[in-house]
Nucleic acid binder design. Structure first.
Lengths: 218, 218
DNA sequence: AGGAAAAAATTTATGCAATAAAAAATTTTT
DNA sequence: AAAAATTTTTTATTGCATAAATTTTTTCCT
């Protein structure tokens, strides 16, 4: 049976990530070469490539790990604290920005996000997006709670709404990361504008028509 | 006086872009080396770097050019055809998807979008985002028209709403580009769900409270 | 347990992007 | 027409990424 082989692979993975974390923290990701990571991990440079594809892949793996932390933080700090959906969305966005900026600086985040798009179909691109999805689900559950409290229309799909708000949040997050001067206060204000504009965009008499659009689009 | 120098620079720029367009179309951007572009343009490889920074920079310059076309197409095909804001948004998204997929394939688009984030503060990253902004403005103008027709609440800022819808659209566009299997019909359906969910999310009695959020967030 | 078979990592080699510094060419200025 | 200024090219280096051949290590079978 195969046991040793798998264990050694996992071990090398761990050593590579550990080495990368240390070196990235010391000198930044740009100043750290793959070869240096490999040496610190006790493997060859080619092995790092075999395991993680690209240097950005190593970075994505690091981020993916931290995202598990974020997910826990989200599940702990978000539920049951919001009086309405706007409050909820802003809280959600704030937790994500906060976690992101504590963990890495904007420059490196730009590379991470770029990599998650460029290598969207790679192993680590996928795991990155999967964690996005799990984050969105936490939001969905809170929306369901707000629906029960009458703060959100019962006719709307909590899942669809959660995904949509997550999209908006994500776009603002990318913007926050892309622009060095953007503060979290500014980003929060812009996000609030995004949300509220759409929330109140439709006159009451147009809402029934809007619902029909969903069905016709499939 | 200085005239010749500027003219020759512009000329080299044009030749480089022209060479890149031809070679990218023939062999794809990955199989095309900077050196090959330089040779076809009659300059040195280093000059291409001096002018465009990176290979992705050359690609962004190409796209930026095509985006001017898109902007014209948008200004021509979008106005005055939509009966409501959902219709408008879907039409807007469809024109963008259509233009994008006609111009480049998804694989290359992923690189372009990744580059626009990674090099957001470079010269070409900026011009890319500026064209995004101009596209959003076309949408804003149409929303203003719908407001006059009573299809959109008069109390909401057309600019804010336009930007917000553009963000949602952009996120869906990135998703459309990132996932090879995603068809434009599917993407349209998902986008419609995003929009409608948010549009009808708030019960009528919550809308006044939503408006107050905007002010408090600044 | 020992040897064959399979799997995986390493070595070796190559191509290309990106950048820096020195040298050469060309335009501008006086 | 020569000096000064600017820009391109040449030259050289580093590091990412990938491929092919080789060696090491693990697994499987008798």
């Amino acid at each position: 049976m195969s046991g040793l082989r798998e264990k050694q692979k996992a071990d090398r993975r761990r050593r590579i990530i550990e080495a990368a974390r240390t070196l990235f923290a010391q000198a930044g990701s740009e100043a750290t070469t793959i070869e240096a990571i490999a040496e610190a991990a006790g493997v060859s440079g080619v092995t790092v490539h075999n395991y993680y594809g690209t240097k950005a892949g190593v970075l994505l793996a690091l981020v993916t790990e931290s995202d598990r932390e974020l997910l826990q933080k989200m599940a702990r700090d978000l539920p049951g604290k919001s009086s309405d959906v706007i409050d909820l969305a802003r809280r959600f966005a704030a937790i994500i920005r906060d976690h992101a900026i504590t963990f890495l600086d904007k420059k490196i985040w730009r590379q991470v996000i770029a990599a998650s798009i460029a290598d969207a179909d790679s192993r680590f691109g996928k795991s990155y997006h999967s964690l996005d999805h799990q984050l969105a689900l936490v939001l969905v559950r809170e929306i369901e709670a707000l629906q029960k409290a009458g703060q959100v229309s019962a006719e709307v799909s909590a899942y669809d709404l959660g995904k949509a708000i997550f999209s908006l949040q994500n776009m603002r997050f990318v913007n926050f990361i892309a622009v060095d001067e953007m503060t979290d206060v500014q980003s929060d204000a812009l996000f609030t504008r995004d949300l509220c504009s759409i929330f109140v965009a439709l006159p009451a008499e147009q809402r029934a028509a809007a619902m029909r659009h969903i069905e016709s689009a499939g």
